[in-house]
Every structure is written in C-alpha cells, then in structure tokens.
Amino acid sequence: MVEVNQSTAAPVTEVYPDLPTLTKAVADKLLSTLKRTVEEDGEAHVALTGGGPGIGVLKAAAELVTSGEASGFEPAWANVHIWWGDERLLPEDDADRNDKQAHDALLNLLVADYGLPEENIHPMPTSEDAATPEAGAEMYAEELKAHGPAGGGDGLSLPQLTVHLLGVGPDGHINSLFPGKQALQVSGQPVTSENSAPAELGPPMRVSLTFDAVHAARRVWLITAGESKAEAVSKAFAEETPVEEIPSKNARGAAETIWHIDQAAAAQL
C-alpha cells in the first residue's frame, strides 16, 4: 500500500471563478516565484505539465510576457531550467507530446526573444531516442542526475525543483502515475516507466517522474478545472481514499502544496 508522505507540506486550496482566471493567476505567481528563486539561488528549475490547464498556464505566461504585464517580476531566463513531469514516448514533433505543446505555447517565444538557452530545456526522450519507456526513464534519470547536487551522486539525484506543476486527470492521476499501476510503488529513483496508460488517455507508453521526485520539489502546484474533475478533487481530500485509487492524494511538495482549482472542480469539496 502506498502511504501519503506526511513529512511534506499538507495541501491547501485556491479556488478561482473560472479557468482563464486560474491560469493567469498561476502564470503570474510562477513568473514571480522563478524570479525570486533566481535572485536568491542563482538559478531556478521548474517541471511543466501537459493538459488543458497546464498548457493554459504557459499560454497565460506568454501573454503576460509579451504584453509587458510581467515587467518587474519576470525571471532572468538564462538562469531558468525547464523539465517535465511526464511525457508520451512519441516522435519529437508529435502534437501529443507535452514538450511540443509547451514549445508552441511559451518556450519558442522565450528562446527567440527573451534569452532562454535551448540547452536549459530538458525534454523527456522521444521514440527516436529510446525504444522503450524503460530506456527513456533511464535516460531522463541521467539528465536529472547531471544537474543534481554536485552534478551527480547515487540514488535520488536531481535538481531542486522550484515548482512542479501538475495536472489532475478525472481518474485522479498525476504525471503518468495512474490508479492501480505498478509505477505508484516505485521508490528510491526519480523516474519510472509506464507501458500501458489507460486507452482513453492516448498513447500508452510514457516516461514519468515518481512520487519521490514530486516530494523533493519545493513547491507542488496542482492545476485542474471543470466538472469532470470534481469527484477526483473531492476524493483526494478525503482521509479514507487510498493513494492507489487517487494518486493525486500523494502529490505534495517539500515546502508547499497548493491545489489551484476552479469553482466547477471544487463543487464537491
């Protein structure tokens, strides 16, 4: 049985009237948090997520940057590193890849006009890079390790994520950690594989950060919206719900855990 990590920050909620208000608020907060971290620590690392709300945050960030609204609280992009919480093992330019959607929404803009170095973007392996999710997981673990404490080490070696953004599926999954799957049990390593994601959620072969990697992030910000998510949100806050049924219950950051939800998703709380 997977236990909720009680040494991490207990979750709190922020409820917004609708999805556009939610995504703009999270984008605003993300930019200012990355800026503060760069100023204090010299660099910042963020793990992105896919899905409508997750990509919506990136689009909102692009609007803030290009409109000038981000002036004064935008980070020095040369000192920001971009990671992903999970990815589909597909060709590089496949529209279903989270990193492709993120590039279209924000990253291409930051590289072209705002000084984000290409080498600071760390996409998960493509199907051209890795023949299997297991191989892809090993490759991404090595990439994380190269940017971890002292550039390496054993075990759970990865950079300190300033923020790990997470979407939440109607089934309560986060990253590619799905209800009832073996990946929920993986510990002692930052990355795992998934060969049989639920058919209704698209391509089955995935690479995903583990619960251990999520818990190592300073801040975990969940972003979800819509009536279809209300039951999963409610169950995630119910004491009796097992993690195996609603994996997002175990989505917690080391210092902060915030569920950003719209009124529809909060309807059953």
Rank of each mutant, 00 (worst) to 15 (best):
Ala213Gln: 02
Pro11Lys: 00
Ala197Cys: 05
Gln263Pro: 06
Ala61Trp: 10
Tyr16Thr: 07
Gly54Phe: 13
Val214Thr: 13
Lys145Phe: 07
Ala27Glu: 05
Tyr140Gln: 07
Pro170Tyr: 00
Glu119Gly: 01
Gln189Ile: 08
Val220Thr: 06
Trp221Arg: 09
Pro75Ala: 00
Ala238Pro: 08
Val46Leu: 11
His215Ser: 13
Thr132Phe: 12
Asp93Ile: 08
Val80Ile: 09
Val214Trp: 00
Ala131Thr: 11
Glu240Gly: 10
Pro11Tyr: 03
Ala213Thr: 05
Asn108Asp: 15
Phe73Ala: 03
Pro125His: 05
Glu245Asn: 04
Ile121Gln: 02
Glu63Ser: 15
Gln6Cys: 14
Gly152Lys: 00
Ile261Leu: 14
Gly253His: 04
Gly115Leu: 11
Leu107Cys: 05
Ala70Cys: 07
His147Tyr: 15
Pro11Asn: 04
Lys229Leu: 12
Glu227Gln: 11
Gly152His: 06
Leu106Trp: 09
Ile174Phe: 01
Ala95Lys: 10
Gly180Trp: 13
Pro247Trp: 00
Gly169Ala: 07
Gly68Ser: 05
Gln160His: 10
Asp18Cys: 10
Leu201His: 15
Glu244Lys: 07
Ala102Lys: 01
Leu64Trp: 11
Leu184Glu: 04
Asp171Arg: 00
Ser32Pro: 02
Gly51Glu: 06
Ile55Asn: 12
Gln189Ser: 06
Gly56Lys: 08
Gly52Met: 09
Glu244Asn: 10
Leu48Ile: 09
Lys145Thr: 12
Leu269Val: 05
Gly54Ser: 07
Leu22His: 02
Thr37Glu: 15
Arg252Ile: 00
Arg219Cys: 10
Leu106Lys: 03
Glu244His: 12
His122Asn: 12
Val233Cys: 14
Ala76Phe: 13
Trp83Met: 08
Leu156Asn: 11
Phe211Met: 12
Asn98Pro: 11
Met1Gln: 10
Gly155Arg: 00
Ser127Pro: 04
Pro247Arg: 03
Leu110Ala: 02
Ser71Pro: 06
Glu200Pro: 03
Leu22Glu: 07
Met124Ser: 02
Pro247His: 04
Lys235Trp: 02
Glu87Gly: 11
Phe178Ser: 03
Asp129Arg: 04
Thr23Asn: 10
Pro91Cys: 13
Gln185His: 13
Gly56Cys: 12
Ala135Ser: 04
Val111Trp: 03
Ala61Glu: 10
Asp99His: 14
Ser176Phe: 14
Thr241Met: 06
